[in-house]
Structures are given as C-alpha cells and as structure tokens.
Amino acid sequence: MNWHAIRAIYLFEMARMRRTLLQSVISPVLSTTLYFVVFGAAIGSRISEVDGVSYGAFLVPGLLMLSLLTQSVSNASFAIYFPKFTGTIFEHLSAPVSAFELTASYVAAAASKSVILGVIILLTARLFVPFGIAHPVWMAAFLVLTAVTFSLLGFLIGIWAENFEKLQLIPLLVITPLTFLGGSFYSIDMLPPFWRTVSLLNPVLYLVSGFRWSFFGSADVGVGLSLGMTLAFLLACAAVVAWMFRTGYRLKP
C-alpha cells in the first residue's frame, strides 16, 4: 500500500477545500436555511406532525441528506475531473499508485468534506428547530456511509465526464430528482399507493429513511433494509470504478 501517496492526495484535496472554505460552506448553509424558512415555516404551519414528529424536525434528516448527496457528488466529481481537464492527471497515471489507492484517497477527501459540511448544516438546523438524536452512533454511521457512497458515485461521474456539461448533467438529471423524490420532505405514507411502490425503487429513499430512523427511531422502511441498500449501492459504485480502472476507461488513451 502506497500510504505516502494516499496521504499526499488526501492532504492536497483538503488544502484545496481550505482555500475555498467560505464558498463551500456558505452555499449549502444558505440553501438549508432557505429550505427551513420555506418548507419549515410556510408549509410546516399547515402540516403539524409527521409520524409524531414536528414537520420542522422531520425535515432535518432529509435536508441533511439532500446536501450530503449533492455535495459528495459534486466534490468528488470535480476533484478527479479537474486534473483530467488541466492535464495534471498524467502525474497520477505515471505514479506507483493503484486504482484502489487513487479512488480511496479522492473519495476519503470528498467524503470528509461532506461530513464536515453535514455537521455544519446540522448545527445550523438546530438554530431553527429543536430536535434530539435517538441513535447518535447510527446517525454518524449513516452520515459517513452516505458521504462515502456518493463520493464514490461522484468520482465515477468525474472519470466518465469528458466535458463540463456532462459533469453537471448527472447531478442535475439524476441525483436531484432522486433526492427530491426520495422522501426528503415527506413520508412516503403520504403518497398514493402507486407512487409509494415506485418510491421503493429509489435508492435515496433508503438513505433518507435510515438516517431519519437514527434521529427519531421510526421511518418509512426498516433500518436493516436501509443499511443493506446503502451498502449495495456502495458496492455497485465500487464495482463500476474498478471496471473503469481495469480497462483504463477514459483515463488513458
């Protein structure tokens, strides 16, 4: 294992984050605040409780997941796309670094950044609504697991994309709809039966649900299923990345 390389890439990425700290923190915090104002205050006054939890509190895990997913994907996809774009990727390709080491270091950095943001958003949310966390360890576990999984997805997108449009395409076309339709803002019990069934095909639902369970002790689907689905999604992304590297897909001519 080339630990020096993993450390070098990780620190390089974290330094990049530090340089852009303000913009990377401000925008998610701002959008979360807006969601709370719009959904929590405006709509929340009409929906009193969901599953025995105030709507404002109910929103917290969903909104947190929403930011976590989008941030993880955009951090990781940009992190690997940028060296491809500038040509500095030659150095990674010529270095004694395995595909696993390269992926692990980029994903670890992107996930770290998302987790830090997640914590900041959680603290921001706490300013708006009171809520407790029923299973803090599970909460942290879901936070990290989601950050890792979607950083991996982002990494994959970053390798696949050969221009900026494609880099934006997947998050816009796939991730955002999935998160909005994944029960971030509502319980799927509120949906008509047909859409409830469709929702069960959405991997994000399981993340949000598991995460919500760690906050309130109850959720749309069982926590075991949530965990299983998240892990399955993680493995699927890992398998695609492994395949990409084995074939040199879009990295080497």
Partner: peptide
C-alpha cells in the same frame, strides 16, 4: 521513473513547495 511531460500541465493555485512535495508523496517517498 520520473517524467517531465511535453505539455505544461501544472496545478494553478498550489505553491511551488506544495506541488513538489506532493509529487514526492505520490511516488511513495
């Protein structure tokens, strides 16, 4: 092996010191 490529592909925002130290780490030293 060390490689100085034909194209001038460098980082932009990093310092000289940081980028050279990074390379050493990347190559496992």
């Amino acid at each position: 092996i060390g490689l100085v490529p034909q194209e001038l592909a460098t980082d932009a925002f990093e310092s000289v010191w940081a980028t050279v130290s990074f390379s050493r780490g990347l190559f496992g030293r």
